[in-house]
């Protein structure tokens, strides 16, 4: 009942963020990312659901403008709660970067990892309050 990996890709399949919560060799990561992109970009985003089965796991994904945020979770898990978690994460990024866009994520990728580390650990939810996460991030920004 946890997140296996979390990635952000743009429509061309360029990787923006990838965080793996299970230990996977680099080569396999690359292959997985390719497959995920192929699978998701082929789906109809108007008509189809945001869930799709993928190699004994389930992808929960959502597109924000040109960027896909994808989480791989257990098949038996509550998909919708992860989908909304993706949204919460985007809300946090939006507030943190003050109206986030893909460029913010590209230039501040190391800060995005910081955001992830405040929201998730070991593939589990760590903090589900936007306010608590943002307060922490602002505090960290003020450290030397």
């Amino acid at each position: 009942m946890s997140i296996h990996f979390l990635i952000a890709l743009n429509r061309q399949g360029k990787l923006r963020i990838s965080k793996w919560y299970t230990s996977v060799p680099d080569k396999q990561k690359k292959q997985t990312i390719l497959k995920v992109h192929r699978l998701i970009s082929s789906r109809d985003h108007q008509k189809q659901s945001n869930f799709v089965n993928f190699e004994n796991q389930k992808l929960v994904y959502r597109r924000y403008n040109g960027l896909f945020f994808v989480m791989a979770v257990d098949v038996q898990d509550n998909e919708l709660s992860y989908l909304e978690m993706v949204h919460l994460m985007v809300e946090v990024l939006d507030s943190y970067f003050n109206n986030v866009c893909e460029l913010d994520i590209i230039f501040n990728f190391y800060k995005v990892y910081q955001v992830l580390d405040e929201m998730f650990l070991s593939g589990e939810f760590q903090e589900t309050s936007k306010q608590v996460v943002l307060d922490r991030l602002h505090y960290l920004d003020n450290l030397e």
Binding site: M1, N78, S81, E84, M85, F125, T128, S129
Partner: peptide, 18 residues
């Protein structure tokens, strides 16, 4: 701080269900 769009701690609730 843990209300999400008017709903109290939804993720914690679901985790507890599980």
């Amino acid at each position: 701080s843990h209300m999400y769009h008017g709903i109290p701690a939804p993720w914690l609730t679901v985790k507890l269900f599980q």
